[in-house]
Amino acid sequence: MRITLIILALLWLSGCAYKAEEAPAGSWLAQKNSLEQLQDWQLSAKLGIITAEERGSLSLFWRQNSDDYRMNLTNVVGKRVFDLSRSGNKVALIDSKGQQHQATDARELVWRLTGWDLPVEQLSYWIKGLPGADDQVTYDEHGRPQTINAHGWQLRYFGYTQIDGLWLPSRLDLTHKETKLRLAIHQWELK
Rank of each mutant, 00 (worst) to 15 (best):
K46S: 09
L47M: 05
G48W: 07
G48F: 09
G48S: 12
I50V: 15
I50G: 13
A52E: 15
A52D: 15
E53N: 14
E53C: 06
E54L: 01
G56Q: 05
G56A: 00
G56H: 01
G56F: 01
S57W: 11
S59M: 11
S59Q: 12
S59P: 10
L60C: 02
L60F: 02
L60P: 00
F61P: 06
F61L: 13
F61Q: 12
R63Y: 00
R63H: 04
R63K: 08
R63F: 03
Q64V: 10
Q64A: 10
N65F: 10
N65T: 13
S66F: 08
S66H: 08
S66Q: 07
S66E: 10
D67Q: 12
D67C: 02
D68C: 04
D68N: 08
D68L: 00
Y69E: 06
R70M: 15
R70G: 09
R70H: 14
M71I: 08
M71E: 06
M71F: 08
M71Q: 06
L73G: 05
L73P: 08
L73F: 04
T74G: 02
T74H: 04
N75C: 04
N75S: 02
N75I: 06
N75H: 04
N75G: 06
N75Q: 04
V76T: 14
V77Y: 13
K79P: 09
K79C: 12
R80T: 15
R80K: 15
R80N: 13
V81E: 01
V81D: 03
V81Y: 00
V81C: 01
V81M: 05
V81K: 07
V81G: 00
D83G: 05
D83M: 11
D83R: 15
L84R: 01
S85W: 06
S85C: 09
S85F: 01
S85N: 13
R86N: 03
R86A: 01
R86W: 07
S87V: 05
S87C: 05
G88N: 03
G88R: 03
N89R: 10
N89D: 14
N89M: 06
K90W: 04
K90V: 15
K90A: 14
K90D: 14
V91G: 03
V91Y: 01
V91C: 00
V91I: 03
A92Q: 15
A92F: 10
A92Y: 12
L93N: 07
L93P: 11
L93E: 08
L93R: 07
L93Y: 05
I94S: 09
I94G: 05
I94P: 00
D95S: 12
D95I: 09
S96A: 13
S96T: 07
S96Y: 12
K97V: 12
K97Q: 14
G98Y: 00
G98M: 02
Q99I: 11
Q100D: 08
Q100H: 08
Q100N: 09
H101E: 05
H101N: 06
Q102C: 13
A103S: 14
A103H: 08
T104P: 03
T104C: 03
T104G: 03
T104W: 02
D105C: 06
D105L: 06
D105W: 04
A106K: 06
A106F: 02
A106I: 08
A106G: 05
